[in-house]
């Protein structure tokens, strides 16, 4: 077991932005699992470049006790063209999975994932954009956290360690995507896998508890099952991952590229 007193969780890489291009060891069991995944028709080809992920694992579950691997970089691809007007399956799935509910305090309520509607005045085109923690390679929330409660896991997932969070809300202010929230009141009936509590910051965990079991995030699963099939989840660092092929093929963009944060959520049709 590790020393619980250690505090350093900063990435050792000198250039965190370069991590998605890091070479990966060949012959990984994940790839074999992916091959089996594809061969088993768990992924259905609907149209060129559109793959419906039906809830099977993008990779094998790590054995119990195995730490997150820095060779992986989990990310999302969201094709906004497939987001139907009024569809909020991803938001509903997240609420069910994690037990958060928006109240009547507007932006102060938790919105681990929310739908942002944006209309271009010049031609009237409206986008419905699911927005959540972008799991930056260089997360500003992590940089401002005075207690290292906000940290970046080895596989790129940005999390709040509530055991260290002092509720200063610096991360809430630092996030350019307004994807961090503060829990002001006492909570009960949390989900067993998702502790949440008064005086701590929170945000999208990319369903880290599911990823560790080889499952895909709840929003992606719900989108494929009942939504428009707009969301994909995968390992951005794995050249053999279907998400990499889709990213190579589709015109995608990331939010606020000017900030150079290395976000892990890619949007198509943005």
């Amino acid at each position: 077991m590790t020393d619980p007193r250690r505090t350093s969780d900063r990435p050792t890489s000198a250039c965190p932005m370069a991590e998605t291009d890091a070479p990966r060891p060949a012959g990984r069991s994940r790839r074999q699992a992916l091959a089996a995944f594809a061969a088993g028709a768990a992924a259905t080809m609907l149209a060129p470049g559109v793959v419906l992920i039906t809830g099977a694992a993008p990779g094998a579950a790590r054995p119990p006790g195995t730490p997150a691997s820095p060779a992986q970089r989990w990310g999302l691809l969201i094709e906004l063209g497939h987001c139907a007007d009024g569809c909020a399956r991803c938001v509903e799935a997240c609420q069910t999975e994690h037990g958060w509910h928006a109240g009547d305090h507007g932006a102060h309520d938790p919105h681990w994932i929310r739908l942002v509607s944006a209309t271009d005045d010049t031609h009237g085109r409206t986008l419905n954009l699911p927005l959540m923690c972008q799991h930056c390679a260089a997360p500003p929330c992590r940089d401002v956290c005075p207690t290292h409660a906000t940290f970046r896991r080895a596989d790129g997932i940005v999390l709040v360690d509530r055991h260290r969070c002092i509720g200063c809300r610096y991360c809430v202010m630092a996030c350019p995507f307004s994807a961090r929230f503060f829990t002001p009141g006492a909570l009960t009936d949390q989900r067993p896998h998702m502790p949440r509590g008064q005086g701590t910051a929170e945000g999208c965990t990319l369903c880290v508890h599911r990823i560790d079991q080889g499952q895909i995030p709840a929003c992606v699963e719900a989108c494929a099952a009942a939504g428009g099939g707009a969301m994909r989840f995968g390992d951005l660092a794995d050249p053999d991952d279907p998400i990499r092929a889709a990213l190579a093929e589709l015109p995608t963009a990331r939010l606020r590229p000017d900030l150079g944060l290395g976000t892990a959520v890619h949007y198509g049709d943005l």
Partner: peptide, 24 residues
């Protein structure tokens, strides 16, 4: 509990056998 919480949250070393919820 202190050791397990750091292993799980910060390292991602999940082992359901040692989960606090198992105690409950």
């Amino acid at each position: 509990l202190f050791e397990v919480r750091d292993e799980v949250v910060r390292d991602g070393r999940r082992n359901a056998e040692w989960a606090l919820h198992g105690c409950i």
